[in-house]
């Protein structure tokens, strides 16, 4: 009887030790994290200088319509009359008919600025993130069209399903305070 009681207290003693240890470790770890300057939340973003415009963003996102959209660095744009981001290289004439344009949803809007310059704006509601335009722009233009994860749409999954398949490993975790990796020097309004 005495031995049994003794055993019980020993087990209890060990349990108390484990609990106290756990409490100290847990509070220490949380305290250290809270004090650390790197403990900011992270979000996913595309490094536009690594992105090869393969088009997987359009189909790999968990959302029905991808979180990835095309963005335009206007300061880099040449405002060309014939935009290689807008028109296919193998086109019949320079008209904006369906068989001539890169964008499958007609999300690039072209408007006249001044002779001989034209402005190209992406309609984000139409853009599906297929990267056809940015591929064309990279190939023959200035590379001012580039793909970005839009944070009003992104669910910030712990494992980004686009990052898993990205052949260039261009999707990286960035601090939530600086959530965009923009090309050129456009002012960041985020």
């Amino acid at each position: 009887m005495a031995a049994a009681e003794n055993k019980k207290t020993r087990r209890e003693f060990i349990a108390d030790g484990i609990r106290t240890g756990g409490l100290i470790i847990a509070s220490g770890a949380i305290g250290a994290l809270a004090a650390s300057s790197h403990a900011e939340d992270t979000v996913w973003q595309i490094d536009p200088y690594k992105c090869t415009n393969c088009g997987l963003c359009a189909t790999s996102c968990v959302l029905d319509q991808s979180t990835v959209k095309c963005m335009h660095a206007f300061a880099m744009c040449g405002y060309c009359n014939l935009c290689s981001g807008m028109l296919r290289p193998e086109r019949v004439g320079n008209t904006i008919e369906a068989e001539n344009v890169q964008c499958p949803t007609f999300a690039i809007q072209r408007s006249y600025v001044e002779n001989p310059y034209f402005q190209y704006v992406i309609d984000e509601n139409l853009c599906i993130g297929c990267a056809k335009c940015s591929k064309g722009c990279d190939a023959f233009g200035n590379g001012s069209l580039f793909m970005q994860i839009r944070h009003d749409r992104c669910l910030n999954c712990n494992q980004c399903s686009i990052a898993e398949v990205c052949p260039a490993q261009a999707i990286v975790r960035v601090p939530a305070g600086k959530p965009y990796l923009l090309k050129s020097k456009i002012k960041q309004d985020g």
């Binding site: 959530p179 960041q188 309004d189």
Partner: peptide
């Protein structure tokens, strides 16, 4: 240049 608005994350 048109202004692009980059919505912040949550």
């Amino acid at each position: 240049y048109p202004v692009t608005i980059n919505p912040p994350p949550r």
